[in-house]
């Protein structure tokens, strides 16, 4: 299963105001406007490379909730989006 990691050698450049965050992506020079869920996923992946399932499990644990298929779908969508932007990349099979 693919593991995901942040596509940068340096730490994330991110600033948060309330529920809104802005992340500066060094590799592309672009600034992305992200919501709280996206930020949480990005920060998990920035800590260590994770599979989509691991991200999902950590979010369940963090929020103290049981299995949630909507959340899993959301994780897949967000990671796909971040991959499309070049912010995260797959790093293993």
């Amino acid at each position: 299963m693919k593991r995901w990691q942040v596509n940068s050698l340096a730490p994330l450049v991110l600033h948060t105001w309330g529920a809104v965050s802005f992340v500066y992506h060094r590799e592309s020079g672009q600034t992305h406007f992200i919501n709280a869920s996206c930020r949480q996923i990005l920060e998990l992946i920035a800590e260590q490379s994770l599979t989509t399932i691991q991200v999902h499990e950590r979010l369940l644990e963090h929020h103290g909730i049981d299995e949630d298929s909507d959340l899993q779908e959301a994780v897949i969508t967000v990671i796909r989006l971040l991959e499309g932007l070049g912010v995260v990349v797959a790093c293993g099979g």
């Binding site: 600033h15 105001w17 309330g18 802005f22 500066y24 060094r26 020079g29 600034t31 406007f33």
Partner: peptide
């Protein structure tokens, strides 16, 4: 005004935000 909106306005009204790279963001 919300600070997030303020940030967006700053970047959108800048002539060279993108050129300034990470320093521009900071």
């Amino acid at each position: 005004a919300a600070r997030a909106d303020c940030f967006v306005q700053i970047t959108q009204n800048s002539f060279n935000y993108t050129l300034r790279g990470e320093e521009g963001f900071r």
